[in-house]
């Protein structure tokens, strides 16, 4: 009887310790988000005043520390919705096209044989060693010559060749058994049918993962979107818009955080919808089975 109680107590203690660690981990993970929201609610100029607890828990006490004016300003004066919609258009189209092309190229590198395949693949991989900033000027000049300055095409097309995406796709697709493809061929499937009916559905986890990563990249891409658009352009995106809150001597953190509270919503929603695929894609692409 005594030992049964001890076992029960030990079990409870273990559970308690486990939850305590998880709660602590949760707080650590959520801390930047909580800080962002609290900063967004602070009065101008007080972002770095380390005082988050009101003097009294009354409306007056809270209004001494917090305000919703920053949110109003972001929507009324900052034209947040324009930047937000542009970012959605750019990030969605870029992610869609980049994932499609990476998927096609990944399939070819994983399942097709042609002369110099490996050499070409390693050359492509080698380009990942070159820092992204090195491409800025050549890409800018080419985009300009194509007449795409200050257009959505100019913002998106130069980043559609995604070597990392091709690499991820190839690694994942290599784990699809060749026997499946051969069986499809015996059933009379064409190359296109094998790709679209067999390979794509089997690669859903990695496709979703790549879509999310590409979306995230374009959602937060600043320097390219800045240089390829005209000042005051109608197609400016959120990262460029947010940069207007920064000056030579610091940033308007309260306004920046207010805008950031909304700018993380699409990313959060996408991750929530696709989280199962995403985690599966991350782990399955890592090893060849």
């Amino acid at each position: 009887m005594q030992s049964a109680m001890n076992v029960k107590l030990m079990k409870r203690l273990k559970m308690f310790a486990l939850y305590a660690v998880l709660v602590l981990g949760g707080i650590i993970v959520l801390f930047p988000l909580i800080w962002m929201v609290l900063t967004a609610l602070k009065h101008p100029g007080t972002a770095f005043k380390f005082n988050f607890i009101p003097s009294s828990f009354t409306p007056a006490g809270f209004s001494e520390l917090y305000t919703i004016e920053n949110f109003k300003k972001v929507f009324n004066e900052f034209n947040f919705m324009k930047y937000f919609i542009n970012s959605i258009i750019v990030a969605t189209l870029a992610a869609l096209f980049a994932t499609t092309f990476s998927c096609m190229a990944g399939y070819v590198f994983a399942k097709k044989n042609f002369a110099g395949k490996d050499f070409l693949f390693y050359v492509l991989l080698g380009t990942m060693m070159i820092p992204g900033m090195m491409y800025l000027v050549p890409q800018f000049v080419i985009t300009l010559k194509l007449g795409w300055f200050d257009t959505y095409q100019g913002m998106i097309v130069p980043h559609l060749a995604n070597v990392f995406g091709v690499f991820m796709m190839r690694q994942f697709m290599r784990s699809i058994p060749d026997s499946l493809i051969e069986a499809a061929k015996l059933d009379g499937a064409s190359e296109w049918q094998i790709f679209s009916i067999l390979i794509v559905p089997l690669s859903k986890p990695i496709i979703v993962t790549l879509f999310l990563l590409t979306f995230l990249f374009h959602w937060s891409n600043f320097i390219w979107q800045l240089v390829i658009t005209k000042p005051g352009s109608a197609i400016l995106t959120l990262p460029v818009g947010l940069a207007y809150f920064s000056g030579p001597h610091g940033s308007e953190w309260e306004l920046m955080m207010s805008a950031s509270c909304f700018s993380i919503i699409p990313i959060a929603v996408l991750f929530l919808i696709a989280q199962n695929f995403f985690i599966e894609g991350m782990t399955r692409g890592a090893v060849k089975e």
């Binding site: 300055f149 005051g232 920064s246």
Partner: peptide
């Protein structure tokens, strides 16, 4: 008048100069 963000302004000027389309007047650090 066209407003550019302070952050990244040098890159903006550099690329505009490469394009041969700088503004007539610019505010620079």
């Amino acid at each position: 008048v066209a407003q550019i963000p302070w952050m990244g302004q040098e890159s903006k000027y550099r690329t505009a100069l490469i394009a041969g389309a700088p503004p007539d007047i610019g505010r620079v650090d």
